[in-house]
Write a protein that binds this DNA or RNA. Structure first.
Length: 597
RNA sequence: GGUUGAGUAGCUCAGCUGGAUAGAGCAACAGCCUUCUAAGCUGUGGGUCCAGGGUUCGAAUCCCUGCUCAAUCACCA
């Protein structure tokens, strides 16, 4: 049983024995004692004053005395105002460390075939341009979340819905046909997604020029945009695509393949993957049946012009369009269709959509509609809504060229990691491959940690200068501590020290070591909390605190130079388990930890 | 205007179910490497926790009001 639970129940017994009042154990939960006071756990006695009818100090004193006499793990206590600080017997903490050491999957809940099936949708790119910083946040959050849900005993299906159809693709296709001279990613020596992105920009450039020319002829902006021949061509192309025109479709297939090849490379570098990919071109017609079904059941209604709507005024929302008057689908209809397909493919218990907060309204509506349409997970679907990524100068704007490209960003991070490592002489004696690996891990670690450590709900500022800083609360700082422990363990092995074969029963851990063990002991609760609140940031901040604590220990205590063999073994065990938790926590963030750096 | 989220040190952020004197990092300044990796450790300075009410023995945290910022409220996706 966890020590907090032991103390809580002993405290409840104490209150009953002393004052004859039954109190709920959950109201007796001790908290971690603040650094400036002596002790490990603190019971706040204010809630018991009604029962004791005594001053806070006196009450704390009496409960402390009771615990000291009746609860063997309590070694001593002190009282400050209404706070009862308990010192837990060092032997208990040594036992906790042994428990942690014996559990290779410490902090994780096992996944069984009976575990809930959670589907997580993330990434969901458009196929007309390469991934940028905003997608990076999405991908990292989505992947980390899937790891966290898995660690909490869920079966997880990672999914991606690729927006591979629509007017935006036609724009790129048209521009390529007009001005591309049959260029390919191979002939251009460029990633396919970037090549397509270039044509999308090219389309926009010509279109703008066209509109400007028309406006110069005296047309209003709206008139000019409406009469743009280029846009008309793009729309015509979309019409032909929807009609299944083979010429358009073959260009579309070819160009999408280029984009996918580019995306795959970016995903691989980011270290994210998917179990199942849906393509909007295959799902966008699916929602219609469901909507018509809803129409039959009276969940939706039809207007005179033939359009179909849902009345959500009962839920405090507005009326929502689901089928246009020409019978075609809108975005919402497609998402209903995708939901239908997914439920056929997987018996989902929970659905999590990792999508930016600009779609809060959409998912609020989707949840209500799916629920009304009979999806058992509809009502409780989770929209994992994250804030925008802004630059110090403000928002990213593709027109102003301030968009941070994902591939460029990763290049830059790895390059900086390499430079910094080389400067510090960390790559001395490494092979070229090792140096590459280390630079890659460190660069990506810095990027991922920088993004994941902040609360997803918040808009975050991405300052390139800060993101490549490797000191302080950063990924490399954490990775470094891990590498340092690995180094100590290597040296121990070289010296023939086998810490786990040494009898440590007599070792009394010091205060600092107990602080560390106590923090290690809260890892499972942190993992659970991160799963409950869908928060990678909680894991990130926990690991940081742990590392900070370990570095203090590392600085103040000798490990290999410790002469007492048992104490030395104890510290090695402590260190190796800190490293284990670092690696575990970082893996939940999708961050690798090198063994040397 | 409605809805949702955010507002904590100069900057970037923690602060989880209400608890003691609100914490890190960066930036500034001052220290610590012939000893297990100094990408580290230690110290100094820096705060009307947006404002005002309320609940409570106790509020950055919960409730109400207001202010500011962001997103959203399309027969776009």
């Amino acid at each position: 049983m966890k020590i907090e639970q032991i103390i809580a129940s002993a405290t409840a017994r104490a209150v009953y024995a002393l004052y004859g009042t039954e109190v709920d154990e959950n109201n007796c939960m001790p908290q971690k004692t603040k650094k400036e006071f002596e002790g490990n756990l603190t019971v706040v006695v204010f809630p018991f004053l009604r029962a004791s009818k005594k001053a806070p100090e006196a009450t704390a004193q009496e409960i402390g005395e009771y615990l000291l006499e009746n609860e063997p793990t309590v070694a001593s206590y002190n009282v400050i105002k209404g706070f009862l600080n308990l010192v837990i017997a060092p032997a208990h903490w040594a036992g906790v460390l042994h428990e942690i050491d014996s559990n290779a999957r410490y902090g994780f809940t096992e996944v069984t075939p009976q575990s809930p099936l959670v589907m997580i949708e993330y990434s969901s790119p458009n196929t007309n341009k390469p991934l940028h910083l905003g997608h990076v946040r999405n991908n990292l959050l989505g992947y980390s979340l899937s790891r966290i849900m898995e660690a909490n005993g869920n079966r997880v299906v990672k999914t991606n819905i690729v927006n591979d159809r629509g007017i935006h693709i036609c724009k790129s296709m048209l521009a390529w046909q007009k001005w591309g001279n049959n260029i390919t990613p191979e002939s251009a020596g460029k990633k396919g997604d970037h090549l397509i992105g270039d044509f999308y920009v090219l389309f926009d450039k010509h279109y703008k020029a066209e509109v400007a020319a028309l406006m110069a002829q005296g047309k209003s902006k709206e008139e000019a945009e409406a009469s743009s021949p280029l846009m008309a061509e793009a729309r015509e192309m979309l019409r032909r695509w929807e009609a299944g025109d083979e010429e358009v479709r073959s260009v579309w297939r070819m160009m999408n393949e280029w984009v996918y090849a580019g995306f795959d490379e970016t995903y691989r570098r980011m270290g994210v993957d998917f179990d199942k990919i849906y393509y909007e071109s295959e799902t966008y017609l699916e929602g219609k049946d469901k909507v018509l079904e809803g129409l039959d059941k009276g969940i939706m209604y039809r207007k005179e012009d033939g359009s179909v709507w849902a009345d959500l005024t009962g839920e405090g929302l507005d009326h929502k369009l689901l089928l246009r008057s020409d019978g075609t689908s809108v975005y919402m209809t497609q998402d209903i269709g995708t939901a239908k397909l997914r439920f056929i493919d997987y018996p989902i218990d929970q659905m999590i959509y990792v999508v930016g907060n600009e779609q809060n309204y959409h998912f609020q509506v989707l949840s209500i509609l799916l629920d009304k349409l009979g999806f058992k997970w509809g009502k409780d679907l989770v929209h994992f809504s994250y804030g925008m990524v802004e630059l110090p100068e403000g928002k990213m704007k593709s027109r102003e060229g301030t968009v941070v490209d994902a591939d460029d960003l990763m290049d830059e991070m790895e390059r900086t990691a390499r430079e910094t490592s080389a400067e510090l002489g960390k790559l001395d004696g490494c092979t070229a491959e090792e140096a590459n690996e280390i630079s890659r891990m460190v660069g990506m670690g810095a990027l991922k940690y920088f993004i994941l450590k902040v609360d997803p709900r918040k808009n975050m500022t991405f300052n390139p200068k800060e993101s490549i800083d490797f000191n302080g609360n950063t990924g490399p700082f954490i990775q470094y501590t891990h590498a340092r422990i690995c180094s100590v363990m290597r040296k121990a092995a070289e010296a023939g020290i086998e810490y786990n074969k040494v009898d440590m029963t007599g070792v009394v851990p010091s205060e600092k070591e107990i602080d560390l063990i106590q923090r290690m002991a809260s890892y499972p609760a942190t993992v659970a909390e991160a799963g409950r609140t869908y928060s990678p940031a909680q894991i990130a901040n926990y690991v940081y605190d742990l590392v900070k604590e370990y570095n203090q220990f590392y600085h103040d205590f000798s490990i290999l130079r410790e002469e007492n063999e048992n104490v030395r073994a104890f510290r090695l065990m402590l260190s190796v388990n800190v490293a284990k938790i670092i690696a575990s926590g970082m893996s939940l963030l999708g961050i690798e930890v090198p063994e040397r750096m």
